[in-house]
Design a protein around this nucleic acid. Structure first.
Lengths: 199, 199
DNA sequence: GGCTTTTGACTAACTAGTCAGTAAGTTTCC
DNA sequence: GGAAACTTACTGACTAGTTAGTCAAAAGCC
């Protein structure tokens, strides 16, 4: 009923998301404390607890915040030509993370907590389902247009996401941005040799 | 100099590794405490600290323990025919983890701590290098035998490891053992379409 | 006796969350 | 126009719980 019709630029909730973002990039997830978020926020820890009752609730909201942003960026890929569109999607999935390396670390930490945090698991699952849907659709379009062979699009999308997640993990664990390029090349080989009509 | 020439079955160090293994499977890495390890060990926390000064030292030793076991299992693959050998290696890398699901969770948690724990990073790096070396060698053998095309074996091995790590991550994050089979199929497609001589 | 191993009690530090109270702004009603 | 009632945002002090690591003393073993 009395929903705030618009939020000012200094909306506390959004500022806390920004503070959490900075705290996560600086300290990682495992060592993250409400104190660190409060410091970035410039207020007391009680102020943070005023807006988010528990740490878990705050971090679930943060995942929504950051995964929504991610969905936005891949939603900006507007090309309709299947081959080109698939390439651009893979670019977004595999090359963009370079710009957010510190966050990638924290995100892998959070992913590894999915088995213990249902709120995390649900959000990562939804995000993965959405990206896989995007891939499946473009592959199906390509099959319809005759540029891709009549493969199992669902499986092909999962295969590409496996490469994407492998790249993300390897980038963090081996502190090696080249893992993204290796994966990009592997994804291309997969598209060219398995999906492409002639092969 | 004074290395113990042989260790009895009730070697305290080994028993603590076993206790750590059980504690990790039960509680995961993030929540792991010395107390939990001590309970599995059946002794006090101080007894654990007598054998390992710090938690970090203990867990580094545990990684050696468990990664050495892993290397042993893939070292048991003795087939020399390149195509068959590559398939068996991929089976070990992609299907065996089903038996150690709880440990897979803990291992992903530890992998995500590599950026903060040099001791972890070093061990995961060495293990990855070894597995990649095994893959590269079998691919090179296949190229020499004419069953594989003249591809960049180093890259192909990295591509396969990307699929393997993607499968491991996805299995844990999405609580879905089918991710391993999806990856197995993707790896086969990669081998058949990119590596195989005819294609 | 002397060595290794283990215990129990301890500490020092940290952390999520609580709570009473403050201050500033907003709405309601006369 | 102004007072009362209420809401939002916050603070500082606090608690209750947890945890890695220490240490002196005891127990077991050769």
């Amino acid at each position: 009923m009395s929903d705030p019709p618009e939020r000012s630029a200094s909306d506390p909730d959004e500022e806390i998301m920004g503070a959490t973002y900075r705290a996560l990039r600086e300290h990682g997830y495992a060592d993250l404390t409400i104190k660190q978020i409060a410091d970035e926020y410039g207020k007391s820890t009680a102020a943070v607890h005023y807006h988010y009752d528990t740490k878990e609730e705050l971090l679930a909201a943060f995942l929504d915040f950051v995964l929504d942003q991610f969905v936005q960026t891949i939603h900006e890929v507007e090309t309709t030509d299947p081959e080109r569109r698939l390439e651009l999607l893979l670019d977004q999935l595999l090359l963009a993370p370079e710009d957010h390396y510190d966050l990638s670390i924290a995100l892998l930490e959070m992913r590894s907590q999915a088995p213990y945090e249902a709120a995390f698991a649900e959000r990562f699952r939804q995000n993965d389902e959405y990206v896989r849907y995007m891939l499946r659709t473009v592959i199906d379009d390509g099959i319809g247009a005759g540029v891709f062979a009549d493969v199992d699009a669902e499986h092909a999308a999962s295969a590409l996401m496996t490469i994407v997640d492998g790249a993300r993990t390897r980038t963090v664990v081996f502190d090696d941005a080249a893992a993204l390029e290796t994966a990009r090349r592997a994804a291309d080989e997969y598209v060219d040799a398995v999906l492409a009509e002639d092969a």
